[in-house]
Design a protein around this nucleic acid. Structure first.
Lengths: 222, 222
DNA sequence: GTTAAATATGAATGAATTTTCATTATTGTT
DNA sequence: AACAATAATGAAAATTCATTCATATTTAAC
C-alpha cells in the first residue's frame, strides 16, 4: 500500500515511515502542502496522511484541492489541533478521518485500513493478475491494451474471475450468466467459452480457462 | 438519513435521538444487540451506531454479524472503551469509525457524514427521483418495474442523469456516449434520444428530456 | 486400443441493436 | 407569415451479437 505523508516535522515523518516500512508499506514524505500536491500530480497513492499546519499550503488546503480535483482517494488528517470545530471542518471538506497527535501507531494503522478497505471494496474494478475488468465501463484492460468483449463474454469472464480457483459447474454458470435454472439443451456455454478463450488467451498467451471433464470449468490461478 | 442506534443507556440514546431529530434525521433505538439485529432484518438504515457493552449481544458482535452477512452499511462504534486494542479490534472487524464517550455531537455528526458520504459516493447506483440505474447490472428500476434499455440507451440515460439540470451539447454527448470527438454527420444522437424518450417517458408519464433549440438537451430536474 | 460421453470448433442462423436516410414537425428569426 | 435551421420520426439497412447445428476432437473408463 503506497502512502503519502505530508508532514513538516521530520521526526514524526521519519518515525511513521519506519513503522509503515515494518509492515511492508512504502511511504513518500512531502515536507509541505505544495510538495504534496506536486507528488499527487504524477504518482498514485492508496491513502494520504496530512498534517494540518504546514508551510506554504496547509493540509486542509491540500484536502480541499484533492476533492475539488475530483479524486476520491482516502485522506486522513493527522494533526495537533484537537478542537471539535477543526475536526468538523476537515471531515466536512472531504477528509475520511481525523486523528489527533499524539496518537498510537496501531490505531492509526487500523484507521488507515478501515478507510482504505471501504475505498477499495467499492471500486468497480475486478483485477486478476494483469487483467482488469472495469465493471461500469465494461472494458477489459491488459498491459497490451484493451480487449473488446461482447456482453455475454464479459459476464462470463467476470463470473470466472469471481470464482477463480474452484470448479464451476455448468448449472451455476447458466444460473448466473444466462439467468436460467437449467442447462440449455444446446451448447451456448461451450460456444461462448470458445469465443472468450480466443479473445483473452490470444492476448494473454497461456491457457486460463481449463475444462474439467464431466464437472465444468476452472479458471486457473497459480 | 435513517439512523439505527443500539445503546442500552436510555439517557444517551434519547439525547442522541433529540439531536438527530433537530437535523431532521429519523432515529430508531435498539436497547440491545439482539434487538438491533432484529431491526436490521426488516428495515434498511443509512448508518448504524453501536455501543460496545450491551445486554445479550455486544456491539462488536453485531458488527461482526453485519459484515459476515455481507452488508457494507456504515458502522460506527460509540463506546466508553478507549483502549487502543478495542479500537483496533473494532476497526479490523469492519467498523468504519470508533468514537469514544464522552463525545461532541457535532464531531459525531461530522464523522457520520464522512462515513455515509464515502459509502454513498461509491455505490453503483445512480438515483434520479424514482428511477434507479444499476450501473453494474445495467438495469433500470422504477416503481412500476424494470425498464429494459439497450446499451446505448442506458449510456445515454446515465449521461443525462449525471448532468441533469444543465444543457448538454451534442459534442459532449458524442464524446462521452459514442466516444468520438465530433458530431456525426448523421442523426444517431437524435434517433437514440427518441428511443430513450419512448421507453422512459412511457413509464414515467412526463417529459424528462427537453430539447434546447440550437444548444442540445436538458434533463429536467424540478 | 475401443468406446461412449463430454467438450471444442467453424459456419450458419436468427435476433437484437445501432445506424442511416428520407420525410415531417418544430423553432427562432426576419 | 415565410424562411431557414434544427429536431423528431418511422422505417429500412447495416452491423453486431447470441445462439444453434453439424462435425471434429478430447477424455475417462473399460
Amino acid at each position: 500500500m503506497e502512502i503519502l505523508i505530508a508532514e513538516d516535522d521530520e521526526q514524526i515523518a521519519n518515525s511513521l515511515r519506519k513503522n509503515f516500512a515494518e509492515d511492508g508499506n512504502p511511504v513518500m514524505i512531502a515536507k509541505d502542502g505544495e510538495e504534496a500536491i506536486h507528488f499527487l500530480k504524477s504518482i498514485s497513492f492508496d491513502v494520504i496522511l496530512l498534517d494540518w499546519r504546514m508551510p506554504k499550503v496547509s493540509g486542509i488546503e491540500v484536502c480541499r484541492y484533492i476533492r475539488e480535483s475530483g479524486s476520491k482517494i482516502p485522506i486522513i488528517l493527522l494533526t495537533a489541533l484537537s478542537q471539535v470545530k477543526n475536526k468538523v471542518e476537515a471531515l466536512n471538506l472531504g477528509a475520511d478521518d481525523y486523528v489527533t497527535k499524539p496518537f498510537s501507531f496501531d490505531e492509526l494503522a487500523a484507521r488507515i485500513n478501515a478507510v482504505v478497505r471501504r475505498y477499495q471494496s467499492n471500486t468497480n474494478e475486478l483485477i486478476f493478475n494483469d487483467i482488469t475488468l472495469d465493471l461500469i465501463g465494461r472494458k477489459v484492460k491488459t498491459p497490451r491494451g484493451e480487449i473488446y468483449l461482447s456482453g455475454k463474454e464479459f459476464d462470463l469472464l467476470k463470473y470466472f474471475i469471481l470464482h477463480k480457483g474452484s470448479i464451476m459447474s455448468k448449472e451455476d454458470i447458466c444460473k448466473e450468466v444466462w439467468g436460467v435454472n437449467f442447462v440449455p439443451s444446446t451448447n451456448v456455454v461451450e460456444a461462448t467459452v470458445k469465443n472468450l478463450r480466443r479473445k483473452i488467451e490470444d492476448n494473454y498467451g497461456k491457457n486460463l480457462i481449463k475444462s474439467i471433464y464431466g464437472e465444468g470449468y476452472l479458471f486457473i490461478v497459480e
